[in-house]
């Protein structure tokens, strides 16, 4: 009986862990997009935080994927927008999705995105390119020692969706 319970517990650890990561920002996990109206914080004009944009393309994905800006100096509390550009250099349509991550991990809780393309499937036809916007606010409660926050996207091919697409065509 206990054995069954513990087997179940093993599986229970999965959502527990995810919730835990979301709350604590372990692994640089950030939640999904927030609603802009929820942001009501004051803008802190005295403080400047550098936000760094990084991209990684998994080697199975025949795309280019780059931030348009490498850095942005921002005031906490203010809403900013930047873009990533994706380009499909394969001779067939490919579906991909991006996994976001914020470093340092303890900054993840204070980096709020109001618009992002995280985890959503992106389809690009051969040779197509697309601008992918990110809107974000750095929470003024960001710990003082943090002067640089890295927003990183790792983009992966979605094998299943790409295969389905190929079958349809």
């Amino acid at each position: 009986m206990l054995a069954m319970a513990m087997f179940g517990f093993g599986y229970l650890l999965v959502p527990l862990y995810e919730k835990f990561c979301e709350i604590t920002g372990i692994g640089g996990r950030t939640g999904g997009a927030m609603v802009e109206a929820e942001l009501s914080s004051e803008i802190d004009h005295d403080r400047t935080v550098r936000v760094q944009f990084v991209s990684t393309v998994n080697s199975a994905l025949p795309w280019r994927f780059e931030p348009t800006e490498r850095f942005m100096d921002v005031h906490p509390g203010k809403l900013y927008e930047t873009k990533y550009i994706a380009y499909n250099r394969a001779d067939h349509a490919v579906v991909a999705q991006a996994v976001p991550s914020v470093s340092p991990g303890r900054a993840a809780l204070f980096f709020n995105k109001t618009e992002c393309f995280c985890f959503t499937e992106q389809l690009l036809s051969p040779g197509e390119s697309r601008d992918m916007p990110v809107r974000f606010v750095v929470d003024p409660n960001l710990p003082d020692r943090v002067d640089l926050v890295t927003l990183s996207y790792i983009i992966y091919k979605n094998d299943e969706a790409t295969a389905v697409l190929a079958a349809v065509n």
Binding site: L2, A3, M4, M6, F7, F9, G10, Y11, L13, V14
Partner: peptide, 14 residues
């Protein structure tokens, strides 16, 4: 043993 072997079983099943 009773407490943790099932956890291993869960992990490898995943």
């Amino acid at each position: 043993l009773i407490a943790v072997m099932p956890v291993l079983a869960g992990a490898v099943t995943m």
